[in-house]
Design a protein around this nucleic acid. Sequence first.
RNA 1: GCGCAUGUGGCGUAAUUGGUAGCCGCGUUAGACUUAGGAUCUAAUGUCUCAGGACGUGGGGGUUCGAGUCCCUUCAUGCGCACCA
Length: 924
Amino acid sequence: MNYNHRDIETRWQQYWRENNTYRAEIDPSRPKFYVLDMFPYPSGAGLHVGHPLGYIASDIYSRYKRAQGFNVLHPMGYDAYGLPAEQYAIQTGQHPEVTTMQNIARYRNQLDKIGFCYDWNREIKTCDPEFYKWTQWAFMKMVESYYDTRLDKAMPVAALVKHFEEKGTEGIHAACGEELSFTAADWNAMTEKQKSDTLMNYRIAYLGNTMVNWCPELGTVLANDEVSEGLSIRGGYPVEQKLMYQWCLRVSAYAQRLLDGLETIDWTDSLKETQRNWIGRSEGAEMRFKIADSDVELEIFTTRADTIFGVTFMVMAPESEYVDMVTTPDRREAVKEYIDSIKHKTERERMIDKSVSGVFTGAYAVNPLTGKKIPVWVSDYVLAGYGTGAIMAVPAHDSRDYAFARHFDLPIIPLIEGCDVSEQSFDAKSGKMINSAGEELDLNGMDVKDAIAATKKFITEKGIGKVKVNYRLRDAIFSRQRYWGEPFPVYYKDGVPHLMDESALPLLLPPVDSYLPTETGEPPLGRAKDWVTPEGYPIELNTMPGFAGSSAYYLRYMDPRNNEALVSREANEYWRNVDLYIGGTEHATGHLIYSRFWNKFLYDLGYVAESEPFKKLINQGMIQGRSNFVYRIKDSNTFVSHGLKGDYDVTPIHVDVNIVSNDILDTDAFRAWRPDYKDAEFLLEDGRYVCGWAVEKMSKSMFNVVNPDDIVERYGADTLRLYEMFLGPLEQSKPWDTNGIDGVNRFIKKLWGLFFKGDDCLVNDEKPTAEALKAIHKLIKKVTGDIESFSFNTSVAAFMICVNELNAANCHSREVLEQLLIVLAPFAPHVAEELWHSALGHDTTINDARWPEWNEEYLKENSVNYAVSFNGKARFNIQVPADMPRDEVEKLALGHESSAKWLDGKTVRKIIVVPGKIVNIVVG
RNA sequence: GCGCAUGUGGCGUAAUUGGUAGCCGCGUUAGACUUAGGAUCUAAUGUCUCAGGACGUGGGGGUUCGAGUCCCUUCAUGCGCACCA
């Protein structure tokens, strides 16, 4: 019997499927363990060899945990809503669901071949009505909730309404868009429309006029994490800022909890740091500056309250609503002109253009501490969306204010002793204050830190301002002017939005005749026939964004077929949250923020038991492509080998990596690859054509895509799995290089050779030798530790060493081989299962076998090698019994015949023996 | 600019966490078996070398009997944030 991966793998995959081997059920008698992969978006290109990296790692961990007696939940599904399917639908007219389902079938087929232990009974798709019913449901809950800042949790809007009816806004603590103030009488006098608009200021999912990232090319708005450097992440199209009336999620209300929660979870520091940056907490003060000869007060935010005596002007963002309020009639024209010039620029142009520009409004503000009048300017270096959209400018200690002051020749007052502001500002937050004394507050001589505290205290007492924490995190824009997404369960009655009844869920996505916006510019749902409620009210035309469906999917896996709830209390209390989550870093500021927000919201409402969704998170590295090149001599059909290309004028051309092996080109395959190369000539080195190579993104256009199906076909899934792990540390990005795969494949054949020689089974019941026991126990210890620490690459090396040692010891003992297979099974489940049955004669699956314990007794060394060193340099080695006491080792080292030579007549000052390590003899 | 990672043979990497640097694999070289080798097996393989050794973990310094590992400094690469007041 020889190793035949095709036969073995199809047979066992079928067995596992038919016997539901990996089915997970609630079982209170066993501890649970939830292992989750970030579910894929099923793209048309199928899986490439980089996708399964994280899946293999999580699969190994799942199998390991199962062998340790845990009840493991390890599900898989599809993030099925997305732009590519819709773009394809626009081009072809084919319903995105059709292409999505085809892609899912292809993904499933590819995944199945790798032998994962997913419980496919729990498969979910975000575009399935049975799934998106719960996405819509959660949205409705958010509409019906507000965030109570005193209780620090989401509460029902109904309670807020009751409060308004009785006391107006007095005594409410609610996260909101703008601070409102009205009495119960005001509230009760409001029309339904006014009440609705007012409540939108508090709801967690709300309709609001906000500056959005509008992408004309995609015809939709995008969330901040879907935009990078003024371009859309999908497609790379320019994005502009536009004021639109959109559904938003009040994620900002959860900023502090999202920050605090990071302390409680086991994620990498860099990922936590990325989220901290994204949330962008900054402590400071909000202060009001009176505008001279006016009732208007300009509110600003600063982290440098201490620099108030150095404020020489104020600046507002061009979009700020203060602009119209303060501009004097004679400056109106100039200000309008400036703002228009800014509006014409796209976000990207504004970002690239760092030149200083601005315009004086004609107004003056009064510094509340000095009473001095300072000019108020408008400039685009101040952002409308951060803080209050206006700043106090301290040119001496802020580089942007400094540049502005220099450009418009405004005064600069240094506030820190010894700083030189003749060339640049002094931005550091350290030093002693000067020039900072007024009638009521004297900061001179204080350290910056103390000055900040003193100023905060002063302005709070005087009512000029208050201490304030600002966050960079903005509310998430939740509407997309797109077809392929969840419809909003919202209809409009006289222009007032209303939620549908929960019994109307799922609100099914209606068919449309085209996936483009309507002639009047409405989203594609504007084309749907009868898109109205039974009473005839129009239904919302926007759909939800991609992150909606992926925000709570991990909860749905716990109870995927439940029609009564997102997840039953019983299932949620058993499975709780994800113990191990594996996926890429690219979701750091998107999915991983939204999921945490969404989960906290559901936690507040009592629907879930844990406040964080993902306890431990591992980011697998990205697998890049390794492209191969051939070198064509200019204007010819002759190709020179890599080593000879220096002698010719050549153009490098990407060549399909699948016709290259170990960088050697299969020249016949190359001629057959494309018609142009049919008559290609080659200049060879040592009879071979050597290709050049480079690391690039894995993509079709580089001809460097390696399909896992091809690897499975040629080497088998077990080799693919072992090799992907062997490639290097899981969290490190690395190029895919098939060159080393033969070594791993050879290992499996050697392993097979421990069990079978031809048709003869070699397994015996003899007592294993000490060496064999040592080899296997070393392996168990190593692999156990490696899996716990996600060092799968070194485990593969350990398997190779162990098999070599057992081969050398000629060990075919059942006892040893059984343990070998159990620890190998997570990595190479098919071959382990096959040998478990055919060579060891078991009739139950190896998945039921328990993980072995190692015995330290077997691992004990019977002798220890010491390196004896002389003045720090290792000079000779001595071998002594492992249990020899330390002073005897020293004596032996000193008495060693060659030591006399090294000591060279000098006296011994010190001997250092580190047990099991090195003997050091220091002489003087 | 701020923050977070990472630098080890020809290549991917390893090092019991301060104790003989280079495990395992690829590649290369030699040999065996073969009609044949892109199969299999055996051995060698960090660099230099007067063959005794010397030098070696991006560079420079430090702590230590001893440093890839700790400290300072510097360079390079990758990632995140960024007119965020």
